[in-house]
């Protein structure tokens, strides 16, 4: 049986130029799509030149599952299992690669290993990565219940944020605040400077948010200056940061587990194990919903330049691409 049928894409990222979409799946295959051409071909099928930019693939070391990706100007940073690797963009983005070429191995520029804890057989998933581009500090939420702060210039772990009691699903960073969501059902706010946690929220303690059949886990967290949006086994909920209290509980969202949240321009975005990807207002109101190809959406990335695009991927080999968030424009990876 074709294993493509059961492919899961856990992470995506754009190249620094914004023309390429890079996706990583559970089989350890990195796929590079020429977004510019894919979008262009959607508008004008007659253009023959489009065929020049096809997708091509790389193989991760040891065919390791690709859990998360982040990028800065020089490197594509991939979170695998027990290791974070950096790949020079020049070795990934190349117009001369054709679709049918053999899947080549990734040329690793550097790697940082996350050793398993003592007396444990656990290999640690790097579930989420966030980079601070100003000081090149990489934050990694991992399977050993900790968030690592890593200076990628020196390749050393600066600090290990330990407080969660289960693996980290998601992290978000704003200025000096880092928020992490965990399988244990808690969201913790950390102060990066003092390296202490400032606030710990457990949404499932609120009976309006708790969903006992799905569990207490928090699959995703997003923070802005005033707000925190989170969801998972618990319902999607919007919290006021200063009051540390839920402001809106979203009952209108039909899902069995939230994996993706976003907060942009006064609009909330949420997706997960659901037929739809939602756009919501601050007051439990659906602005728009897009039918998604994957059963579960695990990753949603968007960019404004050089062109506006949002890509949704998850437990499917298909990637939904939208240029406006009102409808699905095209589907990649078929």
């Amino acid at each position: 049986m074709d294993d493509k049928y059961y492919m899961t894409i856990l992470s995506q990222t754009f190249s620094p130029c914004g023309n390429y979409l890079i996706t990583g799946n559970n089989y350890g295959i990195l796929t590079v799509y020429n977004l510019k051409n894919e979008l262009h071909s959607g508008i004008d099928d007659n253009d023959e030149n489009v065929s020049a930019g096809q997708s091509y693939r790389f193989e991760m070391i040891q065919k390791m599952q690709i859990n998360s990706m982040e990028s800065n100007e020089h490197f594509l940073i991939i979170g695998g299992v027990g290791v974070i690797v950096g790949v020079d963009w020049d070795t990934v983005i190349n117009n001369n690669f054709s679709e049918n070429r053999k899947i080549g191995p990734l040329k690793i520029s550097w790697n940082i290993s996350i050793p398993p804890p003592k007396d444990s057989m656990l290999s640690i998933d790097v579930n989420c990565l966030v980079i601070n581009k100003e000081d090149n500090i990489l934050y990694a939420g991992c399977g050993d219940n900790a968030v690592y702060a890593i200076n990628i210039e020196y390749g050393e772990v600066i600090h290990k944020f330990e407080e969660h009691r289960d693996f980290i699903h998601s992290i978000d960073k704003l200025d000096e605040t880092l928020a992490s969501a965990s399988e244990d059902g808690s969201v913790i706010f950390w102060d990066i400077r003092s390296k202490k946690y400032t606030l710990k929220l457990i949404p499932s303690n609120n009976s309006a948010i708790k969903r006992p059949d799905l569990g207490n886990w928090i699959g995703s967290v997003t923070i802005t200056k005033d707000w925190m949006l989170c969801g998972g086994g618990s319902k999607l909920s919007l919290w006021n940061r200063s009051m540390a209290a839920p402001m809106t509980v979203y009952n209108s969202v039909e899902d069995s587990g939230i994996h993706v949240t976003k907060l942009m321009d006064e609009t909330l975005y949420a997706g997960g194990c659901s037929k739809y990807f939602y756009q919501l207002s601050f007051t439990d109101e659906i602005l728009c919903k897009i039918k998604t190809s994957p059963v579960s959406v695990y990753t949603c990335i968007n960019q404004e330049n050089p062109f506006k695009v949002t890509c949704l991927a998850g437990s499917s080999h298909k990637i939904d691409v939208c240029t406006k968030l009102n409808y699905k424009m095209t589907t990649l990876g078929i």
């Binding site: 049986m1 294993d3 049928y5 059961y6 006992p212 059949d213 069995s256 587990g257 194990c273 059963v295 579960s296 437990s315």
Partner: peptide, 27 residues
């Protein structure tokens, strides 16, 4: 069974665990 004594129907189109079980056995 759900906690409120209902029954939840899960399969590969609405639940990732079942999908992974299917994958395990098919792939």
């Amino acid at each position: 069974p759900t906690t409120n004594e209902g029954i939840s129907v899960l399969n590969s189109t609405n639940n990732n665990s079942v999908r992974e079980l299917e994958r395990e056995i098919n792939v």
